[in-house]
Computed example of a mutant assay.
Amino acid sequence: MASRSYVRVAEALGRAELPRFLAAAIEVQTSADHPFGRDMALRKPSEADIRSVVPLADRVVQHVAAHAGISPKTAFKLLGQRWPHARWARDVQQAVGMCLLSGGPHPHLTDELVTGWLVTGPSRPWVLFVAEHTDDLLSVCRLEHERAWITRMLRSVGDIAAYEELIKEYTAEAAVLEARRQRARNGLVHGNPTNFPIVESVREYATFLSSGALRLGIESYVENSPPQTALKLRTPEVIAMQAGQDAVTYWRRRVAALQDSP
């Protein structure tokens, strides 16, 4: 899949030169990623490295917004709307990992679950693995102090009410993080004293915005489609779940449709 994406990018680059704002966004994102890259793996990122991410990430989004012909404010709003569902998916996957890595009392079952988890793919979405093995995952989990949270996350794949409750929490979290990110960015850019724990608390969110903006910008370029459309587009999964369908039902229907297609 990754090699196919590289081929598509190369083919797109063969059609025309990379748009300047998109090229600038890639350059800035590369600078932001450098302290956290593989070649720096043996060196712990410094406070200066972490502080630099917030203004650099801001610039990436601004470049992509310019490429798309929309205001940065609009771009940040559209990207921020993607946070709740992405955060939910990440937390469910984290809950699975916590179960599998907790060294439970059933090593053979744990090994089977690890193998099953690693082979999820288009014909075997991870959501369906979670739904089918929730009880098994909980049985091997030894993190009793996290059990309530883990159970809540695992059950949410098949419980739309639980999902919607989590999305409300993540939406409120996104609003807090965005306001904090703006304050941290302004302080760092203008040389005002900025509390490091505050900066560190928004680094993940800032990176999510910039990497998402860049990915969507590149995808629109590869597909030769309007970048503003890519920024506004929601995935079929998100659309279905916002309409009241739980993730398990959505993915079972999607897999069935794929299997029935010629």
Rank of each mutant, 00 (worst) to 15 (best):
G37L: 04
R38A: 15
D39S: 14
M40T: 09
A41M: 14
L42N: 12
R43H: 08
P45A: 07
S46N: 07
A48G: 02
D49R: 01
D49N: 04
I50G: 02
I50K: 07
I50D: 04
S52V: 09
P55E: 08
L56S: 05
A57K: 02
D58E: 14
R59H: 11
V60A: 09
V60C: 10
V60F: 13
Q62Y: 09
A65V: 11
A66D: 12
G69M: 12
G69V: 04
G69R: 10
G69F: 15
I70M: 14
T74D: 13
A75E: 09
A75G: 09
F76A: 03
K77P: 06
K77R: 15
L78A: 09
G80P: 04
W83N: 09
P84I: 05
A86L: 13
A86R: 13
W88T: 00
W88S: 01
R90W: 11
D91S: 10
V92M: 03
Q93G: 06
A95D: 02
V96F: 00
V96R: 00
G97S: 10
G97P: 12
G97V: 04
L101Y: 15
H106I: 09
H106T: 10
P107E: 03
H108F: 15
H108A: 15
L113T: 09
V114T: 08
V114W: 00
W117I: 11
V119C: 03
T120W: 02
P125F: 04
W126I: 12
L128S: 03
V130M: 01
A131W: 01
E132N: 13
L137A: 02
L138E: 04
L138D: 05
V140L: 05
V140H: 12
C141Q: 06
R142Y: 07
L143R: 15
L143D: 08
E144G: 09
E144D: 12
H145D: 14
H145S: 14
H145G: 08
W149F: 14
T151F: 03
T151W: 07
M153Y: 06
M153A: 08
L154V: 01
S156M: 02
S156E: 02
D159H: 03
